[in-house]
Amino acid sequence: MRRTTLLLAALLLAGCSTAQQQQDPHSAHVHPAAAPPSSSAPARPGGFSDTDAAYVQLAIPQDETVLPVLQLAKTRQGVNPALAALAAEVETGHQKELEGLRKALTTAGQTYLAMHDGHDMPGMVTADELDKLTKVTGPAFDDELRTLLKAHFEESTTVAKSELGAGSSPEVLELTKGIEASRAEYLAKLGTG
């Protein structure tokens, strides 16, 4: 519950205007849900709102931080074969998601700001968690991998639901529907891996 609350607060606080983000990504935060769709904020290409921007700026590092975990799962000897196959599937899916998320930013005339680098946020694998994973083998590795993936899938689902409820960009909403659906599939497979 605490992790979900922190994640939603981070998403809402991350909704900075483009100009402010370019100067200082942590100044003058705006609550994206507070601005009605017909506000006097400048229109962005593709109907890209502050909520869309906040979501994409968070979804990218959520996916990026899990990539080293997926690589390790594919290369580590003795990993449960179903878990290794899931890791390969997730890596392919996340690479595709990242392409789509970055394209959405470009379409909206924005750049990725990496404002969450080094943050210990729900849904992101930390350096300490990755280090711990590299030091275990056998069933302990599988258990730790499942724990990290489950947390990532659940938290990225939470953030996706926030975007689906408050976002406005058709491109981002379509990507987010795919992300939400993939997480449900991954969680189902993780339960049987």
Rank of each mutant, 00 (worst) to 15 (best):
residue 5 T to Y: 12
residue 39 S to D: 13
residue 51 T to G: 15
residue 94 H to G: 01
residue 57 Q to N: 12
residue 165 G to H: 01
residue 123 G to H: 03
residue 150 K to S: 13
residue 100 G to M: 01
residue 71 Q to W: 06
residue 164 L to F: 08
residue 26 H to Q: 15
residue 107 T to H: 02
residue 55 Y to R: 03
residue 76 R to D: 02
residue 160 A to M: 05
residue 145 L to T: 07
residue 124 M to G: 07
residue 104 A to T: 06
residue 18 T to G: 10
residue 4 T to N: 01
residue 102 R to D: 06
residue 85 A to P: 00
residue 3 R to I: 13
residue 119 H to P: 01
residue 61 P to G: 08
residue 2 R to D: 15
residue 48 F to R: 04
residue 166 A to N: 15
residue 186 Y to A: 13
residue 8 L to C: 07
residue 147 T to E: 15
residue 112 Y to D: 12
residue 36 P to L: 01
residue 36 P to D: 02
residue 96 K to E: 11
residue 100 G to N: 03
residue 81 P to G: 00
residue 103 K to L: 09
residue 136 V to F: 05
residue 177 K to M: 09
residue 146 R to C: 08
residue 7 L to C: 08
residue 80 N to V: 02
residue 55 Y to L: 00
residue 71 Q to I: 05
residue 189 K to H: 10
residue 150 K to L: 12
residue 143 D to T: 13
residue 140 A to Y: 03
residue 124 M to A: 07
residue 76 R to V: 04
residue 30 V to Y: 09
residue 15 G to Y: 04
residue 61 P to A: 01
residue 12 L to Y: 14
residue 63 D to G: 14
residue 22 Q to L: 10
residue 94 H to F: 07
residue 44 R to C: 08
residue 86 L to R: 09
residue 170 P to K: 04
residue 63 D to L: 05
residue 158 T to D: 14
residue 179 I to F: 00
residue 124 M to T: 11
residue 97 E to L: 03
residue 77 Q to L: 09
residue 43 A to S: 15
residue 152 H to Q: 03
residue 23 Q to T: 15
residue 56 V to G: 05
residue 103 K to F: 02
residue 38 S to T: 14
residue 116 H to S: 10
residue 91 E to H: 12
residue 74 K to H: 13
residue 16 C to N: 11
residue 56 V to Y: 07
residue 143 D to K: 13
residue 17 S to L: 11
residue 95 Q to V: 05
residue 113 L to K: 15
residue 69 V to L: 04
residue 155 E to A: 15
residue 136 V to N: 04
residue 2 R to M: 13
residue 83 L to C: 05
residue 6 L to W: 10
residue 75 T to Q: 15
residue 104 A to P: 06
residue 101 L to N: 07
residue 23 Q to L: 15
residue 36 P to Y: 01
residue 14 A to D: 15
residue 126 T to S: 15
residue 83 L to M: 03
residue 64 E to K: 08
residue 75 T to L: 04
residue 108 A to H: 01
residue 80 N to M: 04
residue 149 L to R: 00
residue 14 A to I: 11
residue 59 A to Q: 08
residue 102 R to C: 04
residue 185 E to M: 12
residue 110 Q to P: 00
residue 191 G to N: 06
residue 151 A to C: 05
residue 151 A to R: 11
residue 55 Y to C: 04
residue 139 P to Q: 11
residue 15 G to H: 03
residue 62 Q to H: 13
residue 18 T to N: 06
residue 8 L to V: 14
residue 152 H to R: 05
residue 1 M to Q: 11
residue 166 A to I: 04
residue 171 E to M: 09
residue 91 E to W: 06
residue 55 Y to A: 09
residue 132 K to I: 00
residue 64 E to S: 11
residue 138 G to V: 14
residue 150 K to P: 12
residue 11 L to T: 01
residue 86 L to P: 04
residue 10 A to L: 10
residue 47 G to L: 04
residue 158 T to W: 08
residue 52 D to Q: 08
residue 26 H to L: 14
residue 119 H to Y: 13
residue 117 D to G: 03
residue 185 E to A: 07
residue 117 D to W: 12
residue 183 R to D: 08
residue 98 L to F: 04
